[in-house]
């Protein structure tokens, strides 16, 4: 891999103010993208953008966590932190994708699911749990890309996939380093100290088998050269979608189950 950034530097790069968001990727790779809104229950959540688009002749359902680029957008999108209605929109769109046999592309970029009164009132935990379970029954290929920040259950909820790509300077972790430090050491300012121990870089996750492939960024990060990772992503996404479409739905689901079944490291005494 290029660059020798520390884990904490990668956290900063993944959150860089000029770092592109999912929007750029969608409009570059799928210029015909049409956004579909709403969960049909409560509201539309702009933290999650969903719709249909064609990437190199493959029509896909594309679902992305979108932090927004302007201040106005960032506030409207809650800085990419989805509410339950966002996850329920995902449930609607993945069922739709399955019905029409469209492969699904998830683009992950969130500090986490929104922690607030409204989100809790409308069942944040239930929404994430139900989405996790649903994704193990969706009989169409799922490809996920960790674009920038992959924070906790909010990222995992759209992280169940048959093939997972991750940008070089993206992070993916159980919690933000700030939250992690606050829980373990009661001091969020220790975030830079714990980032390394958290093993949240693409290299770490590749070594653990959590992700399948790392997509290189230009030296200095994605914001230095917008298009370096995009052309590689286009190739990988379409290549993988095509090969996964060859599998019969039963095998596809069995493989997806098997992938997540093996996660976990423990000791089992023989005696």
């Amino acid at each position: 891999m290029t660059g020798n950034h520390s884990a904490w530097e990668k956290v900063q790069l993944a959150r860089h103010a000029q770092r592109p968001t999912a929007k750029l990727l969608i409009h570059t790779l799928a210029p015909d993208f049409l956004e579909l809104k709403g969960d049909r229950c409560f509201a539309n959540d702009d933290a999650i953008v969903g719709g249909i688009g064609t990437i190199d002749k493959i029509t896909m359902t594309i679902i992305a966590e979108e932090k927004g680029t302007t201040l106005e957008e960032k506030i409207r999108n809650h800085f990419g932190m989805p509410h339950p209605e966002g996850y329920r929109k995902v449930m609607r769109l993945v069922r739709q994708a399955e019905k029409f046999s469209r492969p699904i592309l998830f683009l992950i970029d969130t500090p986490g699911a929104y922690p607030g009164f409204e989100a809790e009132s409308r069942g944040q935990a239930e929404a994430i749990a139900s989405l996790l379970r649903l994704l193990f029954t969706i009989k169409t290929p799922i490809i996920a890309v960790v674009l920038s920040e992959g924070g906790s259950g909010g990222a995992l909820a759209i992280g169940i996939a048959d093939y997972i790509l991750m940008l070089e300077n993206a992070t993916y972790s159980i919690l933000s380093p700030e939250g992690f430090a606050a829980i373990l050491y009661k001091d969020a300012s220790l975030a830079n100290k714990v980032a390394d121990d958290m093993k949240l870089t693409a290299d770490d996750l590749f070594a653990y088998g959590i992700i399948d492939e790392i997509i290189p960024e230009a030296a200095g990060g994605w914001h230095i050269d917008n298009y370096t990772p995009l052309s590689a992503l286009q190739t990988k996404i379409t290549e993988k979608a095509r090969s996964l479409l060859q599998l019969d739905p039963k095998t596809l689901l069995e493989n997806r189950q098997a992938r997540y079944r093996r996660y976990g490291i423990y000791v089992e005494d023989k005696t």
């Binding site: 029954t137 906790s152 993916y172 159980i174 958290m198 996750l205 959590i210 997540y260 976990g264």
Partner: peptide, 26 residues
């Protein structure tokens, strides 16, 4: 909730248990 000290592996247990419950549901 998920155990901090096992990082991403703890997060993946959410997926693993939900996957098993999908089979249980079926």
């Amino acid at each position: 909730g998920a155990r901090m000290q096992e990082g991403i592996f703890s997060l993946m247990q959410m997926a693993k248990t939900a996957a098993a419950l999908a089979r249980h549901n079926d």
